[in-house]
Write a protein that binds this DNA or RNA. Sequence first.
DNA 1: ACTATGACCAGCG
DNA 2: ACGCTGGCCATAG
Length: 107
Amino acid sequence: MLPPPDDYAELVLDTVATIPEGRVASYGAVAAAVREVTGRGSARVVGRVMARYGSEVCWWRVVTASGALAERVAGEQRARLRAEDVPFTRDRVDMRRAAWQPSPPGL
DNA sequence: ACTATGACCAGCG
DNA sequence: ACGCTGGCCATAG
């Protein structure tokens, strides 16, 4: 079994959970929001948290800063995002229109 | 104490 | 629009 998420991972998941339907947030944006509270973390760390615990939240709304999807799950991610009418340009999310800036859940 | 490897990122060519 | 570089930071060997 997977070890339960620690406090940092929990905060990441709570932050991801606040992304509205039809919008996306980049790994870096999530990391920045979490950093406001914890003072730690980075886009890479957020990526790892998503790889492990992403299934517990709306993981498909987290993309790279350029709008690219997560390689490992690109197929389902694209389907889910399109179902929410998230704007695409070819195989990437149109970040100019769909990017959303998360705030830490407690702020 | 390295080295390597990630669902990453910004800057610069 | 790629590709490279250096930064990021936790985990595994």
